[in-house]
Design a binder for these strands. Structure first.
Lengths: 101, 101
DNA sequence: CCACCTGTGAAAATCCTGTGAACGCAGGGA
DNA sequence: TCCCTGCGTTCACAGGATTTTCACAGGTGG
């Protein structure tokens, strides 16, 4: 069986995320979130951790920013990589990035 | 000779249980139960003990929550580790976690 | 003015939880 | 062996909790 090239590359230092070499058009927040999630593959990250990394500080108890940006990120990733599921929800805890899909 | 890598790892502080490095998608309750059982390997734990640790307080005399969650846990563990039998029933007493299967 | 990004509120969709009930299995006694 | 009985297992469901998505208002920079 052939190893396939990784389709998604994330290059924080270039402010870019590429799918098959083509840049996704992500906003700053979306990219920060993707960079943060993908820096810890297969690790379940809480909203608090993600918020701290991307926004800084602690989220209000009822803050839904992380969820909303995860949703926006998924929409763009799903458009570029149909059928993929890179970001997994862990109910009551947070989100997990899985490079395998 | 080399021992094999443990296939199941339980990391309460990361809200995760991993099989071959991949997180199981357990609910909060399921994970709490697995953590509690696995914290006392080979020891038979009564429903009362398990209930106290996971739910807190004492179960109603006819409470079936522990059984139901053991069943759900087994289903997910069995899916990730086919053929394994990590949680053993001790009739009239409770359950026992055996890392060896 | 326009195009876009951002965070918030709220509705819609989805998932989790505990419970009751049906089913099955194992053990004891005749 | 067969039946009975107690216990464990699993299904289905309703209510509640959580997540997802949409719409919008304010802000920014061209």
């Amino acid at each position: 069986m052939l190893g396939r090239m990784a389709r998604l590359e994330i290059k924080p230092e270039e402010h870019a995320a590429l799918v098959d070499g083509r840049p996704l058009s992500l906003t700053v927040r979306e990219l920060q979130l993707l960079v943060t999630l993908s820096a810890h593959p297969q690790r379940i990250m809480t909203r608090e951790e993600l918020f701290a990394e991307v926004w800084g500080g602690r989220p209000r108890s009822d803050d839904r920013s992380v969820d909303v940006y995860v949703s926006r990120l998924r929409a763009k990733l799903g458009e570029a990589l149909p059928g993929s599921r890179l970001i997994h929800t862990h109910n009551g805890i947070g989100y997990r990035f899985s490079p395998e899909g």
